[in-house]
Structures are given as structure tokens and as C-alpha cells.
Simulated assay, not measured.
Amino acid sequence: MSVTTGSNDIDFDNTEELDIPRLAESRDTIEAERTHRKRQLAAAFRIFARYGFDEGIAGHITARDPEFPDRFWVNPYAVHFSRIRVSDLLLIDEEGRVIEGDRRTNKAAFWIHSSIHHARPDVVAVAHAHTIHGRAFASLDKPLDPIVQESCAFYDDHVLFDEYKGLVLEKSEGERIAVRLGDRRAAILRHHGLLTVGRSVEEAAWWFITMERACQMQLLADAAGKPRIMTEEEVTLAHRQFSNANMARHNFNLLADLVVEEEPDVLE
């Protein structure tokens, strides 16, 4: 499958990653990469707000700092997703201390995200929010089925975390989530919601959007009847195409470009 954009063809069957920055012109220095990640992170919150992924003070997305891998950038406590700017982001160290920024952080965000960042050095970003369909599906105590092509992005690549002990306020529970996640790209947290990871902010955010919609589609299909499960051949093809990091980045950037154009204060 390819998409023609001017003189270039983008091959989504090819799993090679293409690096096409949108919100930062150059990423050849640590500072440039940091700026890029922070801009994408701020844009991701605005996108989540547009999708209705906000729920009061709940929800967080993090991006690992490129210079200090034990630290990550995160949204401040009690700031609505639709209002987050680059300058609002907090840099948190491995002990949960705010290194940069002048606002409070979210304790649950620290325990979940720090545990995953520590366990998964390949992960740059982690996304978690309390969405309607994600939470509804999380009550069913089962993984997603491969019933539509987009759901196949998570085929054999997500887990069910089948514990619930309220808010994640202890290190041990964050560590259990990280262990259960293993090397997968997503988790359904029972009675809680969804969590996705990626090697970029773009990936983690797009996988989250895709997973929330996959939950919605399965809920609708299950309510209407008995959906057909895709064959192994169909699933293999769809997983290769729809789990592609390049596709995730392009899809995210379509949304991020709209945010930057319509809400330029996000980059302040």
C-alpha cells in the first residue's frame, strides 16, 4: 500500500522508519531533539482534548528526555489538556522531583510512567488517559479481537493487566504494570483504561487514539451481533501495515499540524 504525496511515494508495507519532522526543522543536536519532543508532547495533549480524552485531572503522556534518559517530560497536575503549552511541561527525575517547571506533578503519573520508562529503554513516550470506550472495554476483562484492520495493530502486541487496586499511588503497582506490559506496545488496565507506548511521542499518541477507536468498534460490533474474527493471513497483513511506526507518525502529524495552525500558542 502506498500513498502519493507530490513526488514521493510512502510505502506503508515497508517497516523501515522514515524520519519526517514537522514541528522542528532540525534534530541534529540534543537540544533540537528535546525541543521536538516537547512540541510534539504539547500538541498531543491538544489532540487528546479534541478527541475528548480529558477527564478532569486524570490522564498523562510522557516523553523521555534525550540527554537524561532517567528523566521525562510530563503535563502538570490539574491543567486541562486543551490549555497545555510547551512552557507548561515539567521535567521529572527518577525520584519524582520536578527539575524544570513551576507546577505540581501527578503522583500516579510518576509511578506508572517512571516504571515503564525504566523497564523499557526503547520507549520514548507513554500515553494513558481515562477515555469512555477504553474504560468500558477495560471492564470486560478480555483483550481486543482482530475484527477490523486497525485493531490488528495490537494483535499479539497488547496485554491485559488484570489487577485493580484503585489509583496507582505506589511504586510496586507501577512496576507490576511495567512487568505485565513486557515488550508490547499497549495494555488494557482492568477497570481503569488504556495505555500505549512508542519510540516517539507521535507513535505513543497515535497508538492510543487507534486503540480507543478499536475498543469503540468492538463494543459496537459485539452489541450488534457476533463479529467475524479475521484469519491468520488477514491479521498478519493488517498487523504489518497498521502497526507501522511510519504510518503512526504521519497520521499523528496530520493532527499536530492542525493544532499548530489553529492553536499556535501550544508552542509557547
Rank of each mutant, 00 (worst) to 15 (best):
R104S: 10
P143T: 14
A24L: 09
E25V: 14
E67A: 10
A108F: 02
I47S: 00
K165Y: 14
Y77E: 09
H117L: 03
S2H: 11
V148A: 13
V74Q: 05
A44L: 00
K142H: 10
I92W: 06
V235M: 07
R85V: 08
H192M: 04
N246T: 15
E173L: 02
V259F: 04
R22A: 04
E234N: 00
L195D: 01
I177R: 00
A43T: 05
A32I: 03
I132R: 15
Q216S: 09
P143A: 10
T196E: 01
L189G: 01
F72Q: 05
E268G: 15
D11I: 06
G166Q: 05
N8E: 13
N251H: 15
A49Y: 03
S82K: 15
A127C: 10
A78D: 13
L144H: 04
T131R: 07
I92E: 04
A138E: 07
H191V: 01
D156T: 13
H36F: 13
V86Q: 04
V259K: 02
W206T: 12
F154S: 05
A245T: 13
G193W: 03
H191F: 07
H158S: 02
T131H: 07
L194Q: 02
I61R: 09
A125S: 14
I132N: 12
H158P: 14
S2N: 09
E203S: 12
L144F: 04
E150D: 15
V179F: 12
R97W: 11
L220P: 06
E212D: 13
T4P: 01
F154A: 02
I177H: 02
L267H: 01
R135Q: 10
D9M: 07
Y164D: 10
P143Y: 02
I112Y: 05
L167M: 13
A205V: 12
Y77G: 08
V148W: 12
D11K: 07
I229C: 03
L254P: 03
F81L: 06
Y77M: 11
R240T: 15
V235I: 11
E175P: 02
K107H: 09
E16K: 02
V79F: 06
E263L: 12
T131M: 04
I10S: 09
R104I: 07
A238C: 09
R27T: 12
D102R: 14
D13C: 12
L144Q: 04
I177K: 00
V123Y: 09
D183G: 07
H130S: 12
F161M: 09
T15W: 09
P264K: 14
R180W: 05
A256N: 06
H250S: 03
D93R: 12
I10W: 10
Y164W: 15
A153R: 08
E175M: 08
R46E: 01
G56L: 13
L267E: 00
A119C: 03
A58G: 08
I57G: 06
F81Y: 10
A214I: 07
A108S: 15
D162T: 11
W111T: 11
D162K: 09
F68H: 15
D162Y: 04
V168C: 06
E263K: 14
M1K: 05
P264C: 08
L255T: 03
V79P: 08
S7H: 12
P66G: 00
D162F: 04
R190N: 12
N244G: 09
A204I: 04
G56V: 08
M217P: 03
D65E: 07
I112Q: 03
